[in-house]
Design a protein around this nucleic acid. Structure first.
Lengths: 155, 155
DNA sequence: ATTTTCCATTAATGTAGATTAAGAACGCAC
DNA sequence: GTGCGTTCTTAATCTACATTAATGGAAAAT
């Protein structure tokens, strides 16, 4: 366990890395994302202050997610110790339930509904991240997000 | 822990239920699904023999998933005991990683790519479940699945 | 066996969102 | 300041998939 500071733009974890860690954000903003075979980024999660971010893989398997800093941040890094994680099963289950709900969202809701849900989930980061990243989190293009916002404003 | 038999069509767990369990399938076939506010089913997971199926929620929270039997089945039911689950953290993490990959799939892949992935994941249940359920698992309509299969056959 | 219900396929049309392209507004470097 | 890159917006066109509807077949009910 160690507390470190990272600069905006710094990559903290790369997809494919072994022994992936758990990161607690004291201040600043991180994001976790994948890059598909066409080179396109897909943002999986944002982690503002007091959020925890981690890949779902066990430490002995290569991880799926890139993690980088969207703002200068102070973060605390924890080892993924299986025996330790056992002590925090509730946190694990909570993360699973978040993932399950995200799948349900992707399967059942339109882009506009997902945008409204994003605003509820991350009320204070809407102005802190570029639109294109929000679009990526929602699974749509920046252009589509632009038109959605316009439609929302009108009604 | 108890082993029970269920008939095809029987609902084993309802969305909203408390104290949700973990089900291990000895024989037969279960599925987990949600129903959205428009009444539409979204299949989350299939569980053929030797698979485990469970809602991601902690037992003290209402669960999200319906679970029912697509074939006559024999299943072993386990309590979700937090202290016990701690002993099986690896299984939990494995389930998380499956969920994470499912999200990546939904965000990055076309319906046809998802269909191909479905066949790899569940090689032996393609003929055991109705097309409409496969379509629901993929997040598309049965009609769309029909045309995808035709296109696939042609090349 | 016959009726009923459910299911798969096909085709016509509709729509959400992707793609492409262009221009406007904002940085940031020099 | 002037350039230059990056981001956001708007609009035109395109495409994957949804919706609707019709048909035929299989399963279940009587």
């Amino acid at each position: 366990m160690a507390t470190i500071t990272v600069k905006k733009g710094e990559i903290i974890q790369r997809s494919g890395a072994l022994n992936s860690k758990v990161y607690f954000v004291n201040s600043g903003l991180l994001r976790g994302y994948t890059i598909d075979e066409k080179g396109k980024e897909h943002i999986f999660i944002f982690a503002p202050e007091n959020w925890t971010i981690a890949d779902a893989q066990a430490p002995e398997f290569p991880c799926d997610l890139f993690i980088d800093a969207l703002e200068d941040s102070t973060i605390t890094v924890f080892q993924k110790d299986i025996t330790q994680e056992g002590k925090n099963v509730e946190a694990l289950i909570k993360r699973m339930s978040v993932l399950q709900k995200r799948i349900i969202m992707l399967m059942s809701y339109s882009a506009m509904e997902r945008f409204e849900h994003f605003i509820e989930t991350y009320p204070n980061i809407l102005k802190r991240v570029p639109q294109k990243m929000i679009a990526s989190y929602l699974g749509i293009t920046p252009e589509a997000l632009s038109t959605i916002k316009k439609r929302k404003g009108k009604k």
